[in-house]
């Protein structure tokens, strides 16, 4: 992998991890479409992916630093007190715990098996198209509930732990390469009655511990002999992924104040179907 390829992958990771378009799907599809000769199973590539995730997680923590501090304080107070209160920050902190449990368990148990089964271009193309269809379906249901039936939106703090766990469960769909973590979590949030901006905020907060833990748990791969050779690429990739992830989350939090998932859904549907045709007809081997 050249330095330019590494930086392009870092930008791709920073953007696609938070935009609802599946980072894992793009990491499989883009090198295949551009006919890059990259061994995605090599130690150096795995180490590179780890640092990209680390950069993304740090960007999310920095962007939401005030929120995380407030949530941490409320969470600690709640445990010290030994009971729940009406503090909205405390409720959100517990929602994050409820949402993280299913994704942590399913991720640890299934990630390797699912990746081994589906991380090749043709299944990824289909899952990417399915990701688009899922978001369009979610938007349609949301419009029926709120725009047509006139039901008011719920606030994030009004969700129950069951709602939080359901959104976490939906996020687990992102184990399938091509299904977006943020997309599935935002759709689940919309279906539980949230507005786009609250659904997106919950999705990004929920993603932070998962991405961070996934990166930290893979740190040993950085010390593999093969990985040390690509240290410069990894360091550059970490910074580039972090900066693009920060810009992405800043853009998306503004976007979801008054826009919906529509453009991302149509992009995934189109890119998924087009990639599927290109790979099945062997236009791209």
């Amino acid at each position: 992998m050249s330095f330019a390829q590494a930086m392009l992958l870092a930008v791709l990771q920073g953007v696609s991890e938070l935009f609802p378009i599946s980072s894992l799907g793009h990491t499989v599809l883009v090198p295949a479409l551009l006919r890059w000769d990259i061994d995605e199973g090599s130690e150096s590539f795995l180490a590179f992916v780890v640092v990209l995730h680390f950069g993304t997680a740090v960007a999310l923590i920095v962007f939401y630093r005030d929120t995380w501090l407030a949530l941490g304080r409320s969470f600690a107070r709640s445990i010290a007190r030994g009971r729940f209160s009406d503090d909205p920050q405390e409720r959100v902190a517990w929602l994050l715990v409820a949402g993280t449990i299913p994704v942590a368990i399913l991720g640890v148990l299934l990630q390797s098996a699912v990746k081994a089964l589906f991380a090749s271009p043709i299944p990824v193309s289909l899952f990417l198209a399915a990701n688009g269809a899922l978001m369009l379906f979610g938007e349609r249901l949301r419009r029926r509930e709120h725009a047509v039936a006139g039901r008011p939106y719920r606030t994030l703090a009004s969700l129950t732990p069951r709602d939080g766990a359901l959104v976490g469960l939906a996020q687990s769909l992102a184990l399938l390469p091509g299904i977006s973590r943020s997309g599935s979590a935002i759709v689940a949030g919309l279906l539980r009655g949230l507005h786009h901006d609250d659904a997106a905020r919950y999705s990004f907060l929920l993603a932070t511990p998962v991405i961070f833990a996934a990166a930290v748990l893979e740190i040993p791969t950085l010390f593999a002999p093969d990985a040390r050779a690509a240290l410069l690429q990894s360091a550059g990739g970490c910074v580039v992924a972090g900066v693009t992830a920060y810009a992405s989350v800043a853009f998306l939090t503004r976007w979801f104040r008054s826009n919906d998932l529509g453009p991302f859904a149509w992009y995934c549907l189109g890119a998924g179907i087009l990639s599927f045709i290109l790979f099945v007809t062997k236009v791209i081997a």
């Binding site: 445990i79 007190r81 030994g82 729940f84 449990i101 942590a104 640890v108 748990l217």
Partner: peptide, 24 residues
């Protein structure tokens, strides 16, 4: 290692649950 870490996290959550029950 990862399965073990998730098990420890679940154990900690059970201890938090115990703390809430005790305070109640």
């Amino acid at each position: 290692a990862k399965h073990g870490i998730v098990s420890v996290v679940l154990a900690l959550l059970c201890l938090v649950w115990f703390r809430f029950q005790s305070a109640e």
